[in-house]
Design a binder for these strands. Structure first.
Lengths: 238, 238
DNA sequence: AATTCTCTGTGCGAAGGCGTACATAGGAGG
DNA sequence: CCTCCTATGTACGCCTTCGCACAGAGAATT
C-alpha cells in the first residue's frame, strides 16, 4: 500500500520532456489525500492543481436539495484543477477524494507559467481535458439511458482502472452518492453481481473476481470512454 | 429572418483583438446550415471549425442501439469543433444543426495556427471550452435527477437564449431525440406547459409566451449554466 | 460480554417513464 | 374535395426506481 512515490507515477508528469520535468519537478509537493478530503468546493478559486499517483478523485456535482452525481473520475492519468489553465479559475463542481492515496501538488501560477510556454505540457493538459470531456459526455448519456446495474459495472471498472489490485474500499452508501441513486439500489445491484460471482464484498470492501464478466455486463459507456482515453493519451504529439 | 451576417455576430469572433481579426476574418467563409445538417460524425477528422451566428447546433451522442442524448448546445456564443485545438482531432459525438441559420467556417490549420500564437484567441477558446464543460456536467446531473417536464423547460430556455424572437421551429419528435426521452413524454410535458399558458405550439412551431414562468418551472440547471457561461464570457482576460 | 454504531439486506406502495397501439388534426398535393 | 402524410394527443400495462421503514449482521467500543 505505501508504495514508492514519484512524479513519474502520474502519467501527465511522466509525459513531460526532460527540460520541462527539470523545471517542474522541483516545485511539486507530495501530499497525502485521505478518503473524503475535499480538494475544492464549487466556486473556490483553485490555487493549486493535483496530480494523483495512487488515489482517485471524483468530480461531483451537488444540487440545491442535496442530491448529487458524479461527473467524472480522475486517477493517475490526469489532474485536478483544469479550470486553472482553462481560464475560468473556478468551477461549479466539487472534487472529493474517493479512494485515499497521494498526489503531487503544484501551485497555480507555476502551472500557468508552464502551460503558456506552449510546450508538451500544454499539449498533454489539453488532450487530457478532452478525454475528461468525453467521460463527462458519456456520463450524461449513461445517466439517461442505462440501468443502475449497468452503471454500477461502469463505475467499478472506471475505479478499478485507477487502482492497483482488484479491491475497492467503498461503502455502498458512497457509491450511491457517486451514481446519484439510492443506497438500496446499489445494494440490490451489488447483490445481483455477487450472486453471479462477479464480485464479493462486505462492509466497504469490494473484491472484483471476474473482470471480464463485469465488462460483459456493462453498457458500452465504459468501453467508449476507455478507448477514447487511451487514444488521447497515446496520441503522437502531431 | 435573413438578417445581415457578419463575423461580429459570433461572440468569439467579436472578442478578438484588432490584429487577430485582421488575420482571421479574411479566411472565414459564410456557410448556410439547414436543419438537420451534420457538421461531423463521431470519429470524423474535423477539418474545419464553425462559428455560428444565427443557428443552433446540438452536440449529440448516439448509442449503439440508436438511442440518443444531447450533450450540449452551441449558438453564437461558441464554436463547433473544439477537438481541433484540444488536440484530439476527433470526438465520439455528432454535431447536428438544430435550428437552421448561418455560421462562419474556418479551416483547421488556420485555427490551430492562431490558437498556438497564445493570444486572445486562445484565451477565448479555452474559456468557452470550460463553459461547454459546465454545460455538459449539468446535463449529466439533470439527466439523473430531474423530470422530463423540468428538462423540457431547460431545453426551451437554452434554445431561446440562442435565437432572436420567442419562436422555436422544432417538432416534439426532435426535442424528444435531444432530451433522449419518448416523443409522448414531450407531448405530455408540452401539453402541461400549454395548459399553463406558458407556451403555445402547433406542428413544429413553439411560441414561448411567458418566459419568466418557464424559468420558474425549470430546475436550477438552466440558471447554473447560464450564470457560469456569462461569467466565463465576460471574465477579464487576467 | 454487552452495547453501540455502521453497513447491508429486504419489503412494501407510489410515481415516473417506457413501449405499444391507436386516434385525431392540420397541411400539402392531387 | 379527397387523400395522404406528418405532427400531436391519449390510453394502458409494465418495469425501474424512489421513498420509507425496519431487520439483521459485522465491527468497534466499553
Amino acid at each position: 500500500m505505501p508504495s514508492i512515490q514519484s512524479p513519474q507515477r502520474n502519467q501527465l508528469l511522466a509525459g513531460l520532456s526532460r527540460q520541462e520535468a527539470d523545471r517542474i519537478y522541483p516545485h511539486l509537493k507530495l501530499v497525502s489525500l485521505p478518503l473524503g478530503k475535499v480538494l475544492y468546493e464549487p466556486g473556490d478559486p483553485q490555487g493549486s492543481v493535483y496530480f494523483p499517483t495512487d488515489c482517485i478523485v471524483s468530480l461531483l456535482y451537488v444540487l440545491e436539495d442535496g442530491a448529487s452525481a458524479e461527473i467524472a473520475v480522475v486517477g493517475n492519468e490526469g489532474l485536478i484543477g483544469i479550470s486553472l489553465f482553462m481560464g475560468g479559475e473556478t468551477t461549479p463542481s466539487r472534487a472529493v477524494v474517493q479512494s485515499a492515496g497521494h498526489a503531487y501538488r503544484l501551485l497555480g501560477p507555476l502551472l500557468k507559467e508552464e502551460f503558456y510556454r506552449s510546450g508538451d505540457m500544454q499539449l498533454l493538459l489539453l488532450r487530457y481535458t478532452q478525454s475528461l470531456i468525453t467521460q463527462m459526455a458519456q456520463t450524461a448519456v449513461c445517466n439517461r439511458h442505462h440501468s443502475v446495474d449497468q452503471q454500477l459495472c461502469r463505475w467499478l471498472l472506471l475505479s478499478l482502472d485507477r487502482l492497483e489490485g482488484n479491491v475497492l474500499s467503498m461503502t455502498q452508501e458512497l457509491i450511491a452518492n457517486m451514481l446519484g441513486v439510492r443506497r438500496e439500489g446499489v445494494t440490490e445491484a451489488a447483490g445481483r453481481l455477487q450472486k453471479l460471482g462477479v464480485i464479493r464484498y462486505s462492509r466497504g470492501r469490494i473484491a472484483v473476481l471476474k473482470r471480464e464478466k463485469l465488462e460483459a455486463l456493462c453498457c458500452e459507456c465504459y468501453a467508449v470512454v476507455k478507448k477514447e482515453t487511451d487514444r488521447l493519451r497515446t496520441f503522437s504529439s502531431l
